[in-house]
Design a protein around this nucleic acid. Sequence first.
DNA 1: ATAGATTGGTATAGAATTGGCACATTAAAT
DNA 2: ATTTAATGTGCCAATTCTATACCAATCTAT
Lengths: 230, 230
Amino acid sequence: MMENSIKATSGAAGIFSKIRAAIINGEYTFNERLPSERDLAEQYGVARGTVRAALDQLERAHMVRKKFGSGTFVCYDTRFEHEDIAEETSPLELIETRLAIEPHIIRLVVSNANNREIRKLEEALENVLHARQDPNSFSSADEAFHLTLANCSQNPLLIWMYQRINDIRSHTQWSHRKNNILTRDKIDYYNDQHTELVRAIIRRDMDSAVGRMTEHLRQAKKDLLGQIPL
Amino acid sequence: MMENSIKATSGAAGIFSKIRAAIINGEYTFNERLPSERDLAEQYGVARGTVRAALDQLERAHMVRKKFGSGTFVCYDTRFEHEDIAEETSPLELIETRLAIEPHIIRLVVSNANNREIRKLEEALENVLHARQDPNSFSSADEAFHLTLANCSQNPLLIWMYQRINDIRSHTQWSHRKNNILTRDKIDYYNDQHTELVRAIIRRDMDSAVGRMTEHLRQAKKDLLGQIPL
DNA sequence: ATAGATTGGTATAGAATTGGCACATTAAAT
DNA sequence: ATTTAATGTGCCAATTCTATACCAATCTAT
């Protein structure tokens, strides 16, 4: 029988769509914590179990992530809602794009960077060298290091494009693979390449610097391909 | 707006959102020092540890940078958040960025393009060859030709980035210079390069194709520099 | 150059909050 | 009558928040 009343789908499904709408609507933003299950229950006038069922559905829909003892967090980024680029970019395609941009960034850095920028670069190198403990902190420092390189290019458009690359890099799609790829040995190897790269830049050795960056990314590409089951 | 915005996201995630909003809002500007952790704690009515947790999140998001004994500083530049990249990109910087991306696009095209895409490329070549009448129509056809090349790379991210380049190209404040640069002779010269480029791609001659594209853009850069009064 | 104030870094323990879970009850649909 | 879904309650376990105290780096004023 048709029920014409505003009363939406009852029960968990109704709460599910309400919270979902609130997230898409931007009422709850990326990485923000939702109210507790008890609060949500009171707010929507339902039992806590119902809220839990709705949140479970949202978790299966990859819109929220529950953390025991902590809360329920939004893992849905409206920034990428319109730019579905992040969704449809594979790790391989990302590396391929970095392979296009970063070697040329190095060219600009070698020919344009002044002492002040070199210092910032050395600082970023120090940071990434000291971030050997775990894959996450290394990955974060690595992003910052490469972004610093882009900043040294002095080209706003290239910087902007590299920021977009970093956005996609940190978009969590394949981050779970990091732990497989970034072993302690790999981190040290990448850091050797980082060190040699900065030295070449300081020497203003264009060919060596560009070559090191290209090799660096080719290696990353190779490591990534090794992860894909054939 | 309803008073429905009870939001009041509690905890570190809430403080994180509030401070982030203040930074994006411009309340704290680039390189400015935030209030001390103790002050922020009092200001938001939470414990200092909670503020520290929020600041750590902000640091991981590359929005602030902490300095031992000194303070916490904003390292988020609102200049790059706005979509006015087009405004602040000079013709030279645009060419420099194309010089980074397009030769590598050619690499991918030579190794990946199938017959169907080659046909589309020949079609785009035909269009640009026939657009010799005036600078505007040539410029438009030239944009389409290079975008077709990007499409043949099969890489969504590269295609997306080249679309952004084309946005800026057509936006530009220097379009009036086109009439000075794009003489009839120049147009024919560029089109010769276009033709040779496509032939090299069809021959699957990687070195020649990449070289032609690089030379093409170097020439465009040179022509542009010739226009800038010294 | 020195001393005091300010700042971030760290550690600790207890209180409060949060999600996970079990169980009995109620209501509605089949 | 049986099944299914939502409710209400109570408790557990993981995490976070709070409130302190103290350390170490930096800045400022003398």
